[in-house]
């Protein structure tokens, strides 16, 4: 179980002599990923989802708030003491090309963390190569084919599988997949997603799925929770299917409306809102963060910041003063 409460992160952008500008990447985010569960973070670029993923994977530090891994709060620990906890959380990078060292064979790439693992657990040296083979088979590739090869000799899909196998070398408790299929050919994406799903079911690894594409989140986390992030704030959260079918926050509705409709297979949703693009939002810090773009805003929205709360209208939480269900997602066309 991995939880976070009130996570904030502010980046300082280097400005001129008069001072630097601050970018608030995360404005107090709460989350919880149960053991073996699947959770998705959804949002556009700049919403803070990647920063949050990197903080959870221990690759970045947050400013305030607390991350608790299996009951142990991380803040009181020294960076050295934290490391073994964060090792249980492995990040799967977006780009499998840069995630593998081009000068090392797959065998070398897998061997290094396995050697460490063998030392930690007191296993014999012979275990290392055997385990490397097991892991590659587990992610669906033939060890005999890839072990002696360099990353450039593999296809994008195979590379991503190797990256996943490498993450599994340390027996992680959670995989953080940040846009993990966006650079892979369309026809192969689903097989990688299916692999992640399969690993969750077979190994009980929990999955944190970070993406801008709600449809893939629906595929991977159909049983889990979905968090919609906007400008560093969670604006809606709930069970994946529930958020997708009964979105109440206008931003969630805008995101869902933006997904292309497969005309011929589906019809656009009745209340699909053609959303407006992001304006210059840097200084609009007063009131609801989405107010400037929101077609349903009122005076209250421009003055007060809504906080995440439950409502009787739906089974999920949202941060909106005027929540209303809208049918924005496409419906299946009847043949």
């Amino acid at each position: 179980m991995i939880t976070g409460t009130g996570i904030t992160k502010t980046y300082k952008q280097r400005g001129d002599v008069l001072g630097s500008r601050e970018v608030r990447a995360l404005r107090g985010v709460d989350f919880a990923v149960p053991r073996g569960g699947a959770v998705s973070f959804i949002g556009e670029s700049g919403c803070g989802k990647t920063t949050l993923g990197r903080i959870i994977a221990g690759l970045e530090t947050h400013d305030s708030g607390e991350i608790v891994i299996d009951g142990t709060p991380m803040t009181p620990l020294s960076p050295r003491r934290r490391r073994p906890y964060f090792r249980r959380i492995q990040l799967i990078h977006q780009d499998p090309y840069s995630a593998l060292n081009p000068t090392r064979t797959i065998h070398q790439t897998l061997r290094a963390p396995l050697e460490l693992r063998a030392r930690q657990t007191g296993r014999p040296g012979s275990w290392i190569d055997q385990r490397a083979g097991e892991l590659l088979s587990l992610v669906g590739i033939d060890p005999g084919y890839v072990l002696g090869r360099y990353p450039h000799q593999l296809s994008g899909g195979m590379r991503q599988r190797v990256v996943i196998a490498r993450a599994l070398t340390v027996d992680p408790e959670m995989l953080v997949a940040d846009e993990s299929v966006s650079m892979i050919d369309v026809s192969m994406r689903l097989s990688i997603l299916a692999l992640l799903k399969d690993l969750r079911e077979r190994l009980g690894v929990s999955l944190l799925f970070i993406t801008h594409d709600i449809a893939t989140a629906r595929y991977i986390g159909d049983a889990g929770e979905l968090y919609v992030l906007y400008r560093g704030q969670v604006v809606e959260r709930g069970l994946t299917e529930s958020v997708i079918h009964e979105p109440v926050h206008p931003y969630t509705q805008a995101l869902l409306s933006a997904i292309p409709v497969l005309h011929g297979l589906e019809r656009p949703g009745r209340e699909r809102v053609v959303p407006t693009e992001a304006l210059d939002e840097r200084h609009a810090d007063e009131g609801c963060l989405f107010a400037r773009r929101c077609p349903f805003r009122t005076e209250r929205c421009e003055k007060e910041l809504p906080v995440l709360a439950g409502c009787q209208d739906s089974s999920h939480e949202h941060a909106c003063f005027h929540p209303q269900r809208r049918a924005v997602i496409p419906v299946e066309a009847v043949a």
């Binding site: 026809s187 192969m188 994406r189 689903l190 709600i214 893939t216 595929y219 297979l265 299946e332």
Partner: peptide, 24 residues
């Protein structure tokens, strides 16, 4: 047919989405 089946969608039964075997 395979390509369309491999697209995760918002409508319909998501479990029916299936990968296209092999690679381009």
């Amino acid at each position: 047919q395979g390509l369309i089946r491999a697209i995760p969608r918002l409508s319909g039964d998501i479990t029916k989405a299936s990968a296209l075997p092999g690679r381009p």
